[in-house]
Amino acid sequence: MPEKDESIHSFIMRLYMVHSCLKKSNIISKDGRWSRAINVCDEILPKLYLYNDMDIVNSMMNIGWAVPDKSPFSDPTSIIGHVSRLIKVKGEKVNRKSHLEVKFCMACVIESIKSNGFGYFKGAWGFREVRFCKDHNCTLVTVESSSRNKTIDDILMVCSGRYPSGCFCELLDNSPLDKYCHEYIRTEYYNPSIVDDENYVYIADCLRQNIKSLLQTGRRSFPEPVFKYIGLKGNDSIYLYGSDPVFTRKEFAGLIDLMFKCKYDYFIDFWNENAYKHKIYFGVLNRNSISTEIYVYRNIDNCGECVVANCPVKEYMQ
Rank of each mutant, 00 (worst) to 15 (best):
K114T: 04
K114Y: 03
S115P: 00
S115Y: 03
G117S: 05
F118T: 08
G119L: 09
G119I: 07
Y120Q: 04
Y120G: 00
Y120E: 12
Y120I: 02
Y120A: 13
Y120R: 13
F121K: 10
F121T: 14
F121M: 12
F121E: 05
F121L: 14
K122P: 00
G123C: 04
G123R: 09
G123P: 03
A124Q: 11
A124L: 09
A124T: 04
W125S: 05
G126R: 01
F127Q: 05
F127P: 05
F127S: 09
R128A: 07
R128S: 12
R128Y: 09
E129A: 13
E129T: 13
E129F: 00
V130N: 12
R131G: 03
R131M: 12
R131W: 01
R131Y: 02
R131Q: 13
F132P: 09
F132I: 07
F132V: 05
C133Q: 06
C133N: 08
K134I: 08
K134D: 15
K134H: 15
K134T: 11
D135E: 13
T139E: 15
T139F: 03
T139Y: 04
T139R: 12
L140P: 00
V141A: 00
T142M: 01
V143R: 02
V143N: 02
V143C: 06
V143G: 03
V143L: 10
E144D: 09
E144C: 08
E144L: 14
E144G: 02
E144N: 08
E144Q: 03
S145C: 03
S145G: 06
S146W: 00
S146N: 11
S146E: 12
S146V: 11
S146K: 15
S147M: 11
R148T: 01
R148D: 08
R148S: 08
N149W: 02
K150N: 13
I152Q: 04
D153Q: 09
D153G: 08
L156R: 13
L156T: 14
M157Q: 13
M157L: 14
M157V: 05
V158H: 02
V158D: 06
C159T: 10
C159Y: 09
C159E: 15
C159L: 15
C159R: 11
S160Q: 15
S160D: 12
S160E: 14
G161P: 06
G161N: 04
R162Q: 14
R162M: 06
Y163F: 13
P164S: 14
P164T: 12
P164Q: 13
P164C: 07
S165Y: 01
S165P: 00
C167G: 03
C167P: 02
F168L: 07
C169A: 10
C169D: 12
E170P: 01
E170L: 15
L171F: 05
L171S: 14
L171H: 01
L171V: 07
L172P: 01
L172W: 02
D173I: 10
D173L: 11
